[in-house]
């Protein structure tokens, strides 16, 4: 590892005794280029936070703010006293950690391997095809998955039967213990190609001369990957990892809903579906908001922790 691009970028240490105003003046372009958007984000993302007050009310649509009934922490109490909530949290965290691991490693591996392909046209074709499933809806994908795993002529069972691995078809979709793995696999299948794009762009930013030099030194392909490609996309990997750790709890619910059935209900229910079914779906805005606040708080704690850990260990961070 001779030239890590990152190590080059040391902050410019120029000591001056200028006043605050002259500092602002000297960075006026940077300020002009960022602060209008800070205001923008303030308007569209921060102002709507007044909605969090709903969690402390028994909010009824149509009544004015002053007419709403304030209930203190009752909605949170209800949330934390609900036995189902803990079950739902378990499922959410289990599936999102599995997805974080698989959904994070697979795109990196695929991107690196794609990069190693020599034929330009083959490379492009594979890449284009691998991202197609992203555009197929979950309704279709889950239908295909359920059909493939079915005991009634499903491909997987037939294959296992022919290989004499099993002698009776397995009802994969009806087994609680299989559900998390099925969801994770289906998710990787659908999104892996799409998620490689970011890494491909990062790899494209690596200086080709590094590879040339390595070749001259006689480094094998694995060594090249390990010492040039991976370090070259390390910043991107770190940033994405921090952001997805922060996003751990925001798992969505569509795939779980479509792949789930009453037999696996105890393993398929996730926090977003819970919030929909017991919050907005019932017109219970206050309860839904309470779940939302809980999500945000957990996310932000995770974000800051991950950020701090990475800053200490790798020196790279989002903030």
């Amino acid at each position: 590892m001779k030239t890590l691009p990152l190590e080059v970028s040391k902050p410019m240490v120029v000591k001056t005794k200028k006043s605050v105003w002259s500092k602002i003046l000297s960075q006026k372009y940077l300020i002009l280029m960022s602060f209008p958007f800070v205001i923008w984000v303030f308007v569209f993302s921060y102002i709507p936070i007044w909605g969090w007050t709903m969690a402390f009310q028994n909010f009824k649509p149509g009544l004015s703010f002053s007419q709403q009934e304030w209930v203190g922490l009752q909605n949170f109490k209800e949330l934390f006293l609900d036995h189902d909530f803990y079950l739902v949290m378990r499922n959410t965290l289990a599936m999102s950690i599995m997805e974080l691991v698989a959904g994070f490693l697979c795109p990196i591996v695929l991107a690196v391997l794609l990069h190693e392909l020599k034929n330009k046209y083959f490379k492009r074709t594979v890449q284009t095809i691998s991202y197609l499933p992203h555009f197929v809806s979950w309704v279709v994908v889950s239908g295909i998955v359920i059909q493939m795993l079915s005991t009634d002529g499903g491909v997987v069972n037939q294959l296992l039967m022919n290989l004499h691995v099993i002698n009776k078809p397995i009802e994969f979709m009806g087994k609680e213990n299989w559900f998390w793995s099925i969801v994770t696999t289906a998710d990787v299948w659908k999104e892996v190609g799409w998620n490689t794009i970011i890494y491909l762009a990062a790899i494209a930013g690596i200086d080709p001369q590094l590879y040339e030099a390595a070749k001259v030194d006689g480094a094998s392909r694995f060594r090249q990957i390990w010492h040039i490609t991976i370090p070259g996309i390390r910043t991107t990997i770190t940033i994405l990892l921090i952001l997805s750790i922060g996003n751990l709890i925001n798992i969505g619910f569509e795939k779980q809903m479509l792949l789930g059935n009453p037999l696996v209900q105890s393993h398929s229910n996730v926090i977003q579906l819970y919030a929909l079914n017991y919050g907005i779906g019932l017109g219970r805005y206050s309860f839904g908001t309470a779940v939302g606040i809980f999500n945000s708080v957990v996310s932000i704690i995770l974000l800051f922790s991950a950020n701090r850990i990475f800053k200490k260990t790798t020196g790279e961070s989002v903030m």
């Binding site: 028994n58 009824k60 009453p262 037999l263 019932l282 309860f287």
Partner: peptide, 22 residues
């Protein structure tokens, strides 16, 4: 408009789905 009622009802439906199936 009693929101607690709505939540219990939803739960009862979910419970029926899962337990009756079992």
């Amino acid at each position: 408009s009693n929101t607690e009622y709505g939540a219990i009802f939803q739960k009862a439906e979910d419970t029926a789905k899962s337990y009756v199936t079992k």
